[in-house]
Computed example of a mutant assay.
Amino acid sequence: MKNILNKFFPAITVSALLLAGCQKMSKPDLGEYPEDANPPGGPLSFYVAFDGTTDNNLKNAVDSIRANYPSDNPLTSVDGISGKAIKGETAKYVKYIKPNDWAITAKSFTVSSWFKRDGQTKNNENGNGPEYILSFRAANDYNWSNGNFLFFLEGNNAACGVKLYIQSKNGDGWLTWEGGQMIAGLLDNKWHHIAAVYNAPTSTMTLYIDGVANPNTKVWGTHGDLNLDDEKIAEVRIGRGPRNDSEADGAAGWLQSSFKGEIDQVRLYSTALTAAEVQSLFVNKK
Rank of each mutant, 00 (worst) to 15 (best):
N199T: 13
R237H: 12
I263E: 11
I233G: 00
D188Q: 04
K190D: 15
Q256L: 12
T204Q: 14
E235P: 01
K232V: 00
R237P: 05
D172I: 01
N216E: 11
G239T: 07
D188N: 15
V219H: 05
W220N: 04
D245T: 05
P201V: 10
G171C: 13
T176E: 14
L255T: 03
Q181N: 14
S257M: 07
H193L: 12
I194R: 04
T217C: 01
D230W: 00
K232T: 06
V236W: 04
A252L: 13
L226G: 02
K232P: 00
A196S: 09
T206C: 01
I209V: 15
L187N: 00
W254Q: 03
M205S: 03
G224K: 08
D230A: 15
R243F: 00
D225Q: 09
V236G: 05
G224S: 11
H192Q: 11
G173C: 12
N189V: 06
E178Y: 02
H223A: 15
Q256D: 13
H223V: 12
S246K: 07
D172Y: 09
A234K: 09
G239H: 01
W191V: 05
D172C: 05
A251N: 13
I209M: 11
R237M: 12
A234V: 03
A234C: 02
E231I: 02
H192M: 13
P201R: 04
A200K: 03
G239Q: 03
I263D: 10
S257G: 10
E178T: 07
W220M: 11
D210C: 10
G241K: 00
T202G: 08
S203I: 08
M205V: 03
D210P: 06
G253E: 10
P215Y: 08
F259C: 11
E178S: 09
R237D: 10
G239I: 09
L187R: 02
G185T: 08
P201D: 13
A213H: 01
Y198L: 06
D172T: 09
